[in-house]
Computed example of a mutant assay.
Amino acid sequence: MEAFLVSAGVVALAEIGDKTQLLAFILAAKFRQPVPIVLGILVATLLNHAFAAAIGSWILTQLGPGTLNWILGLLFIGMAIWTLIPDQFDETQSGTGGDSAGVFSATLLAFFLAEMGDKTQVATAALAAQYRMFSAVVAGTTLGMMIANVPAVYLGERLANRIPPRLVRGIAAAVFALIGITVLLEASKNLAL
């Protein structure tokens, strides 16, 4: 349960003000069809985060637990720093299409590509390696994406204007840093033994 809850919380915080949330705003404003947009986000996130978690699980088999903990700790601290940097959004990623199938397809493609190499994809890989619970991490990170992006679809820019992205990025960065420090402390304890 911890893997699921931490994964959901970390990604939900990291996504607020992220380029994919901005993408959700733009798709909602452009197409005005929330259901295919939400379904596209869900499917894209499941595919992208399952891929990332599989990579994270594979890395676990390639490295010893001591080395992995040091890498994960540093990775989470790097994620904290990365989270503080606002995303630049390229509106050309929003795709085109007017019918429900076209809106779904545009959303699926745009979100899948926007998440490639994004901090939440990297976080998903790291969380899968740390917790060794593929399904719980993928379910949690997917829920986190949906928590952040579904309101963006339904409430549009009104929501973004009420929540200062800088504050949320700061909270997300603090969570990533706390996880990183905890993992590094655990790794240093294992060195002392």
Rank of each mutant, 00 (worst) to 15 (best):
W70G: 05
L13K: 09
G56C: 08
P65L: 14
L75F: 06
A123R: 03
V35T: 06
V10M: 11
K19A: 13
H49D: 02
G66Q: 13
I171V: 14
Q130M: 12
A192W: 14
V138T: 10
D118L: 12
D87S: 06
Q33R: 15
H49T: 01
I77R: 09
S100K: 12
R132M: 02
K19I: 09
L27R: 06
G140P: 00
T67Y: 14
A173M: 04
L193P: 07
G40M: 10
T83Q: 15
Y131P: 02
I163N: 01
L159E: 03
Q33V: 01
A174Y: 10
I171D: 04
I81Y: 15
N149F: 06
K119C: 06
A172K: 11
E91I: 10
T45K: 04
L167T: 11
L109I: 13
M116Y: 08
V153Q: 07
I179G: 05
M1K: 11
A50I: 05
N69G: 05
A12E: 06
A80Y: 11
E91S: 11
I26S: 15
R162L: 08
A110V: 10
E15C: 07
A110T: 14
A80I: 09
G64K: 13
F25D: 02
A110N: 08
A148F: 07
I26E: 14
G102Y: 08
A50C: 03
D118T: 05
A160C: 03
A106H: 09
R32T: 09
V122Y: 04
E91H: 13
L178T: 14
G180E: 04
P164N: 14
V150K: 05
P86N: 13
H49G: 01
L108I: 03
L143G: 04
F51K: 09
A172V: 06
T61V: 00
A8W: 01
L23E: 03
I163G: 02
L63Y: 15
P151I: 04
A114W: 01
L46C: 01
I55P: 00
P36Q: 03
P34S: 04
L42A: 12
L108K: 02
A160S: 09
S100G: 07
T182E: 11
A12W: 12
L84S: 06
T20I: 04
L72P: 00
L108D: 02
K19Y: 03
V137D: 08
K119F: 09
L60P: 00
